[in-house]
């Protein structure tokens, strides 16, 4: 009996202490006052994960943010699971997340009932461009040769990617193909790979061309195993061998595709929180640590604050609608 009483007292004391401590943790006044949850809609090690962790690391290395920013992974549904979860946090100011084109795509193809309108865009931070690469002994030397071959026979060139059909790696090539005058987009032979095996499959000669992010294959291009036929950038990006990859536009194909990435907050995020992050991020992208990180990862720096970001998103959404519709994947 005595033991029970002692136990109860101990529990009560602990509870009080805990409450007190939680109270103490919060500084009153300036935002942010407590920890900021950084949600990554993908698995550890993926593109979103690396990007978010780099942002957090840079913010902390440059002392721009002093509160803890723990990173959590909530993968699934191509970003849809995290998106649905964020709908429970409408109006909160303590959550950040990162997204890229799939945010729009999962809504357009009907996979998720939510889309970018159910989040608050904070700032666009970086862009990765797409690249179409072939192995060094490929018979295709320019992207136009590929397009010609496809015009003659839409199934002649087997191109692969690391994302599912209807997602980025597939779409970025379709955008290029459409601009090059190819009509039966849904007949193009896209082969989707998992586990990032696309590059290995290309090297092994199992597919003819790989559609992927520039950053993912930069190492292999640098040491000569792969050749970049075209990039989807507006102008040549990167240095060294990467800078030598011609853009689609240069070769007469008027198309660009951006794998943009930006930070978002939950829907109806308070204006002062959005303003804080806009300003902080604007400062961060000027820092040398950020430029270094971008260079290492092969990201191009783009910066757009909330308003401009939203306008860009509207534009991207319209573009994706057109392409998805052509291959019958647009949810009506």
């Amino acid at each position: 009996m005595v033991k029970m009483k002692k136990m109860m007292a101990a529990v009560a004391l602990t509870a009080v202490a805990a409450l007190a401590l939680t109270g103490c943790g919060e500084k009153s006044g300036e935002y942010p006052t407590g920890k900021i949850d950084c949600v990554v809609p993908g698995g550890a090690g993926g593109g979103w994960d690396t990007a978010m962790r780099t942002v957090v690391k840079t913010l902390q290395d440059t002392d721009l943010v002093s509160v803890p920013m723990p990173v959590t992974n909530l993968p699934g549904g191509g970003g849809g699971v995290a998106l649905a979860d964020l709908q429970k946090k409408v109006g909160e100011d303590r959550v950040l997340t990162i997204y890229s084109p799939p945010l729009l795509l999962i809504n357009l193809n009907g996979s998720s009932e939510y889309g970018y309108e159910e989040l608050t865009p904070i700032a666009q931070l970086m862009t990765d461009y797409g690249a179409f690469v072939v192995s060094k002994d490929s018979k295709y030397k320019t992207i136009n040769e590929v397009m010609e071959a496809l015009k003659a026979d839409p199934t002649s060139v087997k191109f692969g990617g690391n994302s599912a059909a209807g997602s980025m790696d597939h779409l970025q090539f379709l955008v290029a193909a459409k601009a090059a005058g190819i009509e039966d987009l849904e007949k193009l032979n896209y082969i989707s790979f998992q586990n990032n095996e696309g590059a290995a499959q290309l090297l092994g000669g199992h597919i003819d061309m790989l559609s992927t992010g520039l950053a993912d294959v930069s190492a292999l291009i640098e040491n000569g195993d792969l050749v970049g036929l075209a990039s989807t950038a507006e102008e040549r990006a990167g240095e060294g061998v990467i800078g030598e990859i011609p853009t689609l536009k240069e070769q007469g194909i008027d198309a660009v595709f951006y794998n943009w990435r930006g930070l978002f907050g939950p829907k109806d995020m308070p204006a002062e929180a959005v303003a804080f992050w806009e300003e902080t991020l604007a400062t961060m992208v000027e820092a040398p640590e950020w430029s270094e990180a971008c260079a290492k990862n092969g990201w191009s720096q783009t910066f757009a604050k909330s308003e401009e970001f939203k306008t860009n998103l509207d534009r991207y959404n319209e573009e994706y609608k057109v392409i998805l519709d052509e291959i019958g994947m647009l949810k009506k």
Partner: peptide, 13 residues
Amino acid sequence: GIPGSGTTAVMMG
């Protein structure tokens, strides 16, 4: 430079 499994993907990141 290709991740062969989930674990190596995280390591590469």
